[in-house]
Design a binder for these strands. Structure first.
Lengths: 254, 254
DNA sequence: CAGTGGTCTAGACCACTTT
DNA sequence: AAGTGGTCTAGACCACTGT
């Protein structure tokens, strides 16, 4: 009579109707199997669907509960980051954004490699010849306790060799300041934002349960002449982040 | 010996290593069960994980194949939409973006309701008093054959009553032109972008299989005085869309 | 018509948490 | 110690696709 999709839809409705509040435990799999007159495996398929949809959360011997919507970090991508008052005492934009939202943000430099062959996507964004152009790669983890974002920053090797950017460890004052100190002036940036299921490595780096999704942001920074200075890939737990573009001037249609 | 997660990881590696090319059929569930020495149900759990991760696609009686990465539409959110040459003969930005990418885009007006109580998120974005502020809602579907985006546009009722925006059917020339014709000048827009699992209605509207994910974009348009004119919610199939913000001026840090 | 994936069952054992 | 969800099995029937 009741297929697992119907059971899933039924439970979904009951939850949406407030029959089970966020955090409340739903009946056990055994009880649901009896209620719907199906086997426990069939109930489990319904619950699996609702877990994947973020509606339910199960903990090993503690039952299945209605999931509370995740706490999202709002991250400014445009106007708000321009406020110089916000760039406090050597805090980067991440620490500042976290502090504004009452969260303890931190950054860990994972690796700095001075000469890596540029992958195709990076070469294209940096306008380097396809093939074996060598680039600098800096990898970072941005955390608020758990890892929230994975950063991979790629820069043309000839631009940054010998500068602070080629050194190990954190770049104090930010990448843009270091670029400026080396005589390069970031003037514009282009961003490409998409969502996709997490790769296996991302799943473990971000501590995602089962099949997680990520937001993938590419930011290409250029100087006034249009020369690319940096290609930055930001991979985030899709459920933990909102990107905000504030006060974009309107010049035409949308 | 082999749990379903190991089997999933094993297959994932084989596919990443190119052992099965995109579009190629992998062995049948029966064959995999025999190879790994497990039951068919266990294999199916592994395959379910890879389907959820977008690695595999199954068709009813035609086997399971390696999924090709979905074709994404690049949608400009900033500089490129300002090019007046692109706004062709009453084509909206959607039709234009699709045409640029060799795709036949179309727009369908789903409903126009003149007086709806504003939901909390809308009231906040339109800076209306919480409670029962009445607003106009226009719902559209943007298609390239399949439905790609769901639009819900909300405007304060007192601003648009009696204008072309309150009429049924398409607004020729675009919402911004209609606002301008009614004496309102859109000057800035703020966008908030996040990803989440699709709600049930979105799943069916967008034709998503199983548990799909969506990108949710809120665009709040204001005039020079900062008065909100429109709150637009755009829900897209997360696998079909990339949002592009071109040539953002850099004024501070990121 | 043979073979595929989709669904379902009635058991079973385990690791773990809660009491 | 009892109860929970996590994993697994060896069957079964079905709808559908390909030939």
């Amino acid at each position: 009579m009741a297929g697992y999709r119907e059971i899933a839809a039924d439970l979904r409705e009951a939850i949406a109707a407030g029959e089970y509040a966020p955090g409340a435990q739903i009946p056990t799999e055994h009880a649901l199997a009896e209620r719907y007159g199906v086997s426990r495996e069939t109930v489990r398929r319904a619950l699996a669907e609702l877990r994947a949809a973020g509606v339910l959360e199960s903990a090993r011997a503690a039952g299945t509960r209605v999931a509370a919507p995740p706490v999202r970090l709002a991250l400014a991508r445009y106007a708000a980051v321009a406020d110089p008052a916000r760039t406090r005492a050597n805090l980067g934009p991440w620490e500042t954004a976290c502090a504004d939202q009452g969260i303890d943000g931190s950054v860990e430099v994972v690796s700095v490699e001075e000469a890596i062959p540029a992958p195709p996507g990076v070469a294209a964004r940096l306008a380097l010849p396809a093939g074996a152009s060598m680039v600098l790669r800096r990898r970072r983890h941005l955390m608020d306790g758990r890892v929230v974002q994975l950063h991979e920053s790629w820069m043309p090797r000839d631009l940054v060799a010998g500068t602070a950017l080629a050194g190990q460890g954190k770049v104090v004052g930010g990448v843009y300041a270091a670029l400026a100190a080396a005589g390069m002036r970031p003037a514009t940036a282009s961003e490409e934002l998409s969502a996709r299921p997490a790769a296996l490595a991302e799943q473990s780096d971000l501590g995602l349960a089962a099949v997680g999704w990520v937001l993938e942001l590419w930011r290409t920074t250029r100087d006034v002449t249009g020369r690319p200075l940096e290609a930055l890939q930001v991979v985030s737990d899709a459920r933990r982040v909102t990107y905000v573009y504030d006060d974009l001037p309107i010049r035409g249609e949308r």
